[in-house]
């Protein structure tokens, strides 16, 4: 499953690591946009297969941030 950015902003913090097992609802990254911290959560539990962004990168709404399997 793809975790996507819900709005445009920059990646402030990545809160998971590749290979990590995560729960549904857990924060995957925290974006910064409109001066706000925007947590992006996993919609289902699984293992982080890939992280598609680095901290500091700019993402657009809908960009894939991570892949969970």
């Amino acid at each position: 499953m793809e975790v996507k950015a819900t709005m445009a902003g920059s990646v402030w913090k990545i809160t998971v690591e590749q290979g990590q097992t995560i729960e549904e609802g857990q924060d995957v990254v925290i974006l910064e946009s409109m001066k706000m911290e925007i947590p992006i959560t996993a919609e289902q539990s699984g293992v982080v297969k890939a992280l598609k962004v680095n901290e500091g990168a700019f993402v657009n709404e809908g960009d894939v941030i991570a892949i969970i399997e």
Binding site: T6, M7, S33, M34, M36, E37, I38, P39
Partner: peptide, 8 residues
């Protein structure tokens, strides 16, 4: 809802 899109 600050948890979603910062409540913007």
């Amino acid at each position: 809802q600050p948890r979603m899109k910062g409540g913007v």
